[in-house]
Simulated assay, not measured.
Amino acid sequence: MFLICGEALFDVFIDPIETDTPDDPITVMRAVAGGSPYNVAVGLARLGRAAALCTEISPDRLGKRLEAALVKEGVDLSFIRRASGATPLALVDVDPTGLPHYGFHGLRQMCLHPVAATFEAERERITGIHVGSFPIVSERSAEKLLKLVEGAGDRIVSLDPNIRLAVEPDTLLWRAQVDRFRVHAHLIKTSVEDLEAIYGVDIDAEAIARSWVGGKTKLVVLTRGERGGVLFAGDGERIEIEAIPTIVVDTVGAGDTYQAALLCWLDEAGLAHPDALAGLSHAQLEEMARFAGHAAALTCARRGPDLPRRAELQTVRAANDVPRANAPVGHLTARASAL
């Protein structure tokens, strides 16, 4: 079972409706369960893998909807904390290219690390731990999560920095925390947008991602929007990841889909173990990247973070399984992730 640590919230989409008076449009708000860790947990469950979400859920109406959705998806609730405050919200404004822009409310007070007694009781069921985004800079949870991944032992640890400056604008803090967490991660997925957000737009994103390989870190996937991505492995191996053309509705949840699909592929292949990552062949790495790319493309073809189910990927190698367009689009980037 994969333990996913982080926030569950509602993405509130702001949808303007055209009226007869263009200067006075009607705005409709549509709430969809989300949050990057929530999406990864649901994505794994939909792909047929066991996943638990460690988060806080409020007793209000939205919190009850979140819990009901997790139950319906088959996500394990053993690590859920009961919150006293309101359910957090992410206001999502999707631009004409399908990229989301976020504003966050109510995240800072959340506890997003496991209760120690619960973790000890469930330890034997956990084969992997995933962390990233706001929890790694959270005053309440970052240190506890760092201790968790430091002591992961033979469990695979994955990290998606998923930078959200709208929640925490301190780029130096993000840089420091990413460096503290990444050395304990066996698999890292990041994006050019993530790295530019905390290091500046003039950086060499590939050089930074490549430098993260070493020690415990065996694989680093860097997504580059419409240019696809690149995977770095041990011994200097570099694999180009072609962007899969798709008709984009929006890119919300695409990065989370990619993350869930990477873990799914490894688990299905019996390779979700730190020692196994170092031994993956070139062909296996390419196959894993294609699987994740097709999954992300399916999410981009639908509105909101509607992650695909395993049955939809049974024929993933056939190009006709994914809605096509004449040019590739940026559905592989982690900026598509919903927080």
Rank of each mutant, 00 (worst) to 15 (best):
85 G>L: 04
77 L>F: 01
102 Y>W: 04
87 T>G: 07
104 F>I: 04
82 R>H: 12
68 A>W: 06
90 A>R: 06
110 M>H: 06
99 L>P: 00
104 F>H: 08
114 P>T: 09
71 V>D: 13
118 T>C: 12
102 Y>E: 06
122 E>H: 12
113 H>N: 12
98 G>F: 03
97 T>L: 01
111 C>Q: 14
83 A>K: 06
79 F>K: 09
113 H>Y: 01
77 L>H: 07
103 G>K: 13
128 G>W: 04
76 D>Y: 10
91 L>T: 14
88 P>K: 11
121 A>L: 11
81 R>T: 02
84 S>P: 00
72 K>Q: 14
87 T>K: 05
70 L>K: 07
105 H>Q: 14
65 R>V: 12
80 I>T: 14
126 I>P: 04
83 A>V: 05
130 H>L: 05
116 A>L: 11
126 I>T: 04
112 L>A: 05
85 G>M: 03
86 A>P: 04
106 G>F: 05
126 I>K: 00
121 A>F: 02
65 R>K: 14
130 H>N: 06
90 A>P: 02
103 G>T: 15
80 I>A: 02
89 L>Y: 12
108 R>P: 01
129 I>E: 01
74 G>L: 12
66 L>V: 11
129 I>F: 02
69 A>M: 12
85 G>I: 00
74 G>K: 13
74 G>T: 11
130 H>K: 05
85 G>D: 08
96 P>C: 00
125 R>V: 01
102 Y>G: 07
87 T>C: 04
124 E>C: 02
119 F>R: 07
109 Q>L: 02
67 E>H: 14
110 M>R: 15
81 R>Q: 09
